[in-house]
Design a protein around this nucleic acid. Structure first.
Lengths: 125, 125
DNA sequence: ATTGACCCCGTACTTATGTACGGAGTTTAT
DNA sequence: ATAAACTCCGTACATAAGTACGGGGTCAAT
């Protein structure tokens, strides 16, 4: 059993963040003995780790809430994963298009002889 | 000279968005004759188009403000472009890592025989 | 037993990019 | 000339994911 401060340090997040997740309903408020202090055991600790892991994968808190409520139904998880995969691939494609546009932009700057007029700015106009 | 409503329709944005850009200092408040109505000419129209084009390239409003203040200095524009390019490439790399992780995730779901226990959920735990 | 570190709660603030609302004045069309 | 449509302004609200603050109670060490 550890206090919120220890837990926060262990997980490398802030106390406020833990309280925030609690307010958001992602985790339960732990038992609070006489002192009124939250005391965290292994269950909540690993729930929080779960949240942090999922967050690192790019899931939003809302999605994580769904993930946690899906109770191990593999098909549901797979379908969420596939959805996410779609989003990710679209985002990558968007960024690659963008990359090309900006690459061309800077190339045309490099090639430009007249320092008074920028082809990029001109093309945006 | 057109009113804000016409301009908004022409650019396919909302009146509020135009007023918002004005509040943010991205564009000047246009002259307002007796009526008190904003009247937009070509200059402001193309400034707004510039903003929308740059936004479509993924620049933030803050960056666009800089872009507009750089007064055609090609070197400055090029350097902003290169910076942006870096960001974009990092973001793409991140997303590609993520793509792989989630791909593996859903693969392991597909391969899973026991519908009662999901390897993804288990690995997050 | 006192001091410093820790925790409580509720609330407000942050960033970015707008959107929505409401009451009032203006312009346009019939 | 009256109604509908448009615009004005300031303010509040929205999202996501927290961060910060302030006044108070509690715990641990000296």
């Amino acid at each position: 059993m550890k206090t919120i401060g220890k837990l926060a340090k262990e997980l490398n997040i802030s106390i406020e963040t833990i309280r925030f997740y609690e307010r958001q309903g992602l985790i339960e408020q732990p038992l609070k003995p006489e002192s009124g202090y939250r005391m965290y055991g292994d269950a909540l600790t690993s729930q929080l780790k779960f949240i942090l892991n999922a967050k690192a994968l790019g899931f939003t808190l809302k999605e994580i809430e769904s993930l946690m409520s899906l109770s191990d139904s593999c098909a549901d998880i797979e379908s969420m994963g596939l959805q996410k995969l779609n989003l990710i691939r679209n985002k990558i494609a968007d960024l690659q298009r963008l990359e090309k546009v900006i690459q061309d932009m800077t190339d045309s700057c490099k090639a430009n002889q007249d320092p008074q007029s920028c082809p990029v700015i001109n093309s945006l106009k």
